[in-house]
Design a protein around this nucleic acid. Structure first.
Length: 487
RNA sequence: GGCGCGUUCGUCUAGUGGCCUAGGACACCGCUCUCUCAAGGCGGAGAUCACGGGUUCGAAUCCCGUACGCGCUACCA
């Protein structure tokens, strides 16, 4: 057991975003690879954006994917609490200490003044950021202002010098201090900003590697300043590439599903999802596409993480999910489907489906579906006595309706004569029938396909007939004959 | 505007100075199999390695510049 500790700190402000989950996955893989700990923390310091039930969704998403945590809000741990809103006293204490030591100061500027200040910047196009009005406020003025006025605490960023650090993904990065403004560390409602809370928690929770999205790269020097002023050891940083939409912008709702839970609903398998997400921004060797989670863990390395953002390619996900579905045994796929329909019932199917029946059907569709959601429409004919189809569907290439009538009549006596109603017997009989007739295979079997399935594109015929059973198959033909006559 | 990061087939990527007339995968196209659709097999098209300069006997790989994209520049994370 190494002492490597990483963390995933979601904010309960909405559904678990694909990009965040990918970040969680990389952290988790890194922890597992190093035999370290993966810690879950709730960053709920923005009281305005809290969403009811959001944290539950976050946990649900991780559980679904099999990403487990060693410490967290629900299971506790040596460094609890793991929810920031329960750690307010710690943030206040550090904030006071920073003020006392001259690293931070109270700022009484109103929101209005700050807004005006920014307006002014816009016109002159000069440096943006806080103008440091309260930075050097003297004690007399401070006394006048008094305690009754609300304030924020700002960090007193050094005016010269620079911060240089080594990012595990990007290498050495430099920022000049003068470009940083005096950022807020404690808000007027007493809650810390991300910058403060994140540093304090990472320190107290003994986080060794901070792996987060690329958008944090620019604020890393702020964090380093806080570490330095507290004389705390600075963790390693790794800024991960972002997941992009097909138009190269940040993946957002207008591009379709962004919540990982949405992909569960759409019928993707968790293993496939993990595999796909892992390969978005990381690669094993440029050859291997399907990598099991255990393999992912043993091979994961930050050195192989790419620097540039990756576009989320739904086509490739569909393909990979298909690969995973095809890799399942009949038993496994049957379970997966049943579980899936339990949560997301299929409109095309009855509520209770018999396990054994489904298990017989599954081999017919496993290589025809890309997602679990594809299965319903493809197999509904097994669960309905009267399948609907349009008359034109029956009309196979090169046939007219009287041909169809003739064929159906002959087929009736042919099918009713099959004693051993098993797919290869059915196949032999029907193929013999076709070769002795003047019709083509596709024409005859096409008619059967339509009357049995109602589909133009369907699972294999003979196997379907076997499962449907002789009685059903015979009566469907006779009903088809009646239908032809009546219209 | 400033600062930072990035840039190899449409997409994900391999590639760390000679094995690269750039490899794999998805998507696409063709053939094959065939009761339809898939899956599978075979094959094809697709990248002057963003651009321009260097360094070197030799550069996708090292250096400099430019362009473009993205991010940050909140009492959001």
């Amino acid at each position: 057991m190494s002492n490597i500790r990483v963390r995933y700190p979601p904010s309960p402000t909405g559904e678990p975003h694909l990009g965040n989950i990918r970040t969680a996955l990389f952290n988790w893989l890194f922890a597992k690879n190093n035999k370290g700990k993966f810690i879950l923390r709730v960053e709920d310091t923005d009281r305005n954006r809290l969403v009811e039930g959001a944290m539950e969704s976050q946990l649900e998403a991780l559980k679904w994917l099999g990403i487990d945590w060693d410490e967290g809000p629900d299971i506790g741990g040596a460094y609890k609490p793991y929810t920031q809103s329960e750690r307010l006293d710690i943030y206040k204490k550090i904030s006071d200490r920073l003020i006392q030591d001259g690293f931070a100061y109270k700022c009484y500027c109103s929101q209005e003044r700050l807004a005006q200040m920014r307006e002014g910047y816009k016109k002159t196009q000069s440096i943006v950021g806080y103008d440091r009005k309260c930075r050097n406020i003297n004690s007399l003025e401070l006394g006048e202002i008094n305690n009754e006025k609300s304030y924020v605490v700002r960090f007193k960023t050094p005016l010269e010098g620079k911060i240089i650090f080594n990012d595990l993904v990007r290498g050495q990065v430099e920022f000049e201090n003068i470009r940083l403004d005096d950022f807020v560390i404690l808000k007027s409602d007493g809650f810390p900003t991300y910058h403060l809370a994140n540093v304090i928690d990472d320190y107290y929770m003994k986080i060794t590697h901070v792996m987060r999205a690329e958008e944090w790269l620019s604020s890393t020097p702020k964090h380093i300043h806080i570490y330095n002023s507290m004389n705390w050891e600075i963790p390693e940083f790794a800024h991960l590439p972002i997941i992009l939409a097909p138009d190269k912008s940040k993946l957002s709702k207008r591009h379709g599903a962004t919540s990982i839970l949405e992909y569960r609903r759409l019928g993707y398998l968790p293993n496939a999802m993990v595999n796909f997400l892992a390969k978005l921004g990381w690669s094993l060797d440029g050859e291997t596409e399907k990598i099991e989670t255990s393999e992912l863990i043993s091979n994961f390395s930050l050195k192989k993480v790419s620097k540039s953002g990756a576009i989320f390619d739904i086509d490739k996900l569909n393909w990979l999910n298909g690969v995973y579905i095809r890799g399942l045994t009949a038993d496994e796929l049957t379970f997966e489907l049943l579980d899936y329909w339990k949560i997301f019932p299929s409109l095309e199917l009855p509520v209770n489906i018999d396990y054994d029946l489904l298990k017989r059907i599954v081999p017919l569709i496993s290589e025809r579906i890309k997602t679990l959601n594809d299965a319903g429409p493809l197999i509904s004919y097994f669960f309905s006595d009267t399948v609907k189809y349009k008359k034109e569907q029956i009309l196979q290439k090169g046939l007219n309706f009287s041909d169809v009538n003739i064929i159906l009549e002959k087929l009736y006596s042919e099918v009713i004569a099959i004693d051993d109603f098993e797919s290869n017997v059915i196949e032999t009989n029907l193929r013999n029938f076709v070769s002795e007739s003047n019709y083509k295979t596709g024409q005859v079997l096409g008619i059967l396909r339509v009357i049995y399935t109602g589909l133009d594109v369907a699972p294999p015929l003979f196997e379907s007939m076997e499962i449907l059973g002789k009685k059903h198959c015979v009566s469907v033909i006779s009903r088809a004959i009646d239908n032809m006559k009546s219209s």
